[in-house]
Design a protein around this nucleic acid. Sequence first.
DNA 1: TTATATTGTGAAACCGCTAGCATAATTTGG
DNA 2: CCAAATTATGCTAGCGGTTTCACAATATAA
Lengths: 346, 346
Amino acid sequence: MNFNAITIRDIAKELNLSVSTVSKALRDSYEISEKTKKLVVEYAERNNYRPNPIAQSLKHGHSKSIGIVIPTIENQFFSQVINGIESVAYNSGFNVIITQTHESYDLEVKNVSHLARRSIDGLLISLSTETKDLEHLKKLHKQGLPIVFFDRVSDEIETHKVIADNFKGGYDATKHLLESGYTRIAHITSPPNISTSKERLAGYNQALAEAGLQVPEEYIKHCLHGGRDASEIENVLTELLSLEKKPDAIFTTSDRITTTTLFLLNKLKIKIPNDIALIGYTNTTFADVLNPPLSSVYQPGFEMGQKAMEMLLNIILSKRPVIKFETLVLPTRLFARSSTACKRLV
Amino acid sequence: MNFNAITIRDIAKELNLSVSTVSKALRDSYEISEKTKKLVVEYAERNNYRPNPIAQSLKHGHSKSIGIVIPTIENQFFSQVINGIESVAYNSGFNVIITQTHESYDLEVKNVSHLARRSIDGLLISLSTETKDLEHLKKLHKQGLPIVFFDRVSDEIETHKVIADNFKGGYDATKHLLESGYTRIAHITSPPNISTSKERLAGYNQALAEAGLQVPEEYIKHCLHGGRDASEIENVLTELLSLEKKPDAIFTTSDRITTTTLFLLNKLKIKIPNDIALIGYTNTTFADVLNPPLSSVYQPGFEMGQKAMEMLLNIILSKRPVIKFETLVLPTRLFARSSTACKRLV
DNA sequence: TTATATTGTGAAACCGCTAGCATAATTTGG
DNA sequence: CCAAATTATGCTAGCGGTTTCACAATATAA
């Protein structure tokens, strides 16, 4: 790794000093004379000496790196979150190790344990759709690993959390459809065990209830893997379309589900919004150039990443154990585009 | 970091053995009796002992982690590359540290030096658009850091490289436009210093030459930051559109440039392909649902990542210095969609 | 029974860096 | 001019593993 890199010993030998003197000189200790410091520092610079971080980590017991566990990097929302995390981590001298679960519980467990073994100083995680059991995290949390949840959180572990206002997101999207004249509103979402689905569903229900509407149960569809495979979505969509009382609008959650639904509707030559209106969660920058331009709920991914990292730093850097935890809720934004244009009354 | 984790010493004390015996038992050394091994291993498992990787790294001089430097994670192509890298790295027990340059030379230098200090065992890099000077990499390479380039490579450093067939990609796209009846084909691309631009441009030129066509110089536009800011693209597009002899087709490179161009053309209410046809490099899964469905050159991102990582492992794991290097060229795929439908003869 | 081979265990050095403390060198005060 | 105080430097232990080598214990052969 460090390829014949120069060590503190080399410097000591070369300059006829002891290792400790060199070390202290490099760290600008008050114990060392200015003259010696200058000598050492200049020699070090000339030979571009770099302290071995591994040795440093071993010495003072932290690695200056944090782990990130997310479903997948390919999702624009999550890559924006990562950008946010990175921007803060970078400024604080922290390294970031990213791992993906691809929505698999097993992979999540593996990644988490892998990271823990890599001696990370803290963990930032958004749960996979499959995750129901939190033991793998609880154990580490008990052992003292600082953890911050973002987006897909759990209340089984008490720590800082950052989420978007999922209830309001679901409520706003549904209300927007209602206001545009749609009443038979279906909902395609991720499994009910993950926090975001639950909250968005609650918002959806609330909006319907306020409008005095009740939709059949078959209107609510969960994709077990959050739409990881297109077939998941194809199946639920087929079900929806073969209902006696076909929905006139669909509200989808998550980038994957949203764009795949759009794709499938197009493929089936179903006109949007004339046959079926569509609004969905997405953070893609393409929403405007889709066919048709897609109404969407946008989540502040970058900010979420920043906040999560700040909270994690707060725990890591705290001298005494943190016992008061906070759940930060970030606002979402609704963009109305033509995929939910007002219903044409026939 | 390792939070009161159990060490080999704890086990030794508890079992009345020496540290070395425990260590050897855990590593299944032939020197240790089966009885003792069993005792130690079981105790370790019961108390879920995990060797401290930092200590291990310090000991045998490698960190089992590799660094990745890419322009940006948000680009679908690069996130697919990462997935490919990860899939191979994971199976070989390697960790992956991802950093982004956001197309900035300064950030690239910083990230590379940061990674080098983190004692990575190898580096996978795709250069930023701004990078012209390779000193930061040459130095490390000379010091013995295994490096593999992918996508945006340089021939100033002799090592393994993986690229897509950029010449053919550019050639095919241009030829496709020609065959669809377009003749005034403009080209919006990244700065001429990066390898991919050069090669795609060469392919474009070749196709035009073969057709006996010559386009004005003003048809070729370089975005200094690869379209990092929409304004870059807006500017060159305005220039193209205000030309006396307006182009009837545009061939774009890179996800960012392609989708932004599409967005801007839509915004300007320029009909695609009637007013101007568009074909571009992109790895987005949305190409089909864009407005209009977008003809594109697709690059095998995942495979590129896999191959790059395999090559890196090849260098890292090699007992003797590697001196024969290879440049692997992966084929691209052209998808013809309606954005390049045959020109209607007026 | 004694010498020799075999096997299991432990002491200690080491990876590179840090930090407390001892010691040497220098300055200051009486 | 010597003792005390100050300042600069070096010794050493330790972070948590791994590994070489010495040694003790046991088995085998003569």
